[in-house]
Amino acid sequence: MFNIILFGPPGSGKGTQSEKLIEKYGLKHLSTGDILRSEIANQTPLGMEAKKIMDKGQLVPDEVVIGMISSALDKHKGVNGFLFDGFPRTTAQAEALDKLLSLNRTSIGVVLALQVPEEELIARLVNRAKTSGRSDDADENIQRKRLEVYHRDTVPVATHYRKQDKVVELKGVGAIEEIFGKLSTEIEKRMEMQRQMENE
Rank of each mutant, 00 (worst) to 15 (best):
A41W: 02
A41F: 10
A41E: 15
N42H: 10
Q43S: 12
Q43D: 11
T44R: 01
T44F: 02
T44C: 01
T44G: 03
P45T: 00
P45W: 01
P45F: 03
P45E: 15
L46G: 10
L46P: 08
L46A: 09
G47L: 08
E49T: 13
E49N: 10
A50S: 07
A50P: 02
K51I: 02
K51P: 04
K51M: 05
K51Y: 02
K52I: 05
I53V: 14
I53N: 11
I53K: 11
D55N: 15
D55F: 05
D55S: 13
K56N: 14
G57N: 07
G57V: 06
G57W: 07
Q58I: 05
L59Y: 12
V60C: 08
P61D: 09
P61W: 10
P61V: 07
D62H: 09
D62Y: 07
D62S: 14
D62R: 07
D62T: 12
E63P: 14
E63N: 13
V64G: 09
V65G: 10
I66H: 05
I66S: 07
I66T: 10
G67K: 05
M68S: 05
M68K: 04
I69G: 04
I69P: 04
S70C: 00
S70N: 15
S70F: 02
S70Y: 02
S70A: 12
S71L: 07
S71P: 01
S71I: 12
L73N: 03
L73K: 04
L73Y: 03
D74L: 09
K75V: 00
K75Y: 00
H76D: 15
H76F: 12
K77G: 06
K77Y: 03
K77M: 07
K77C: 03
K77N: 06
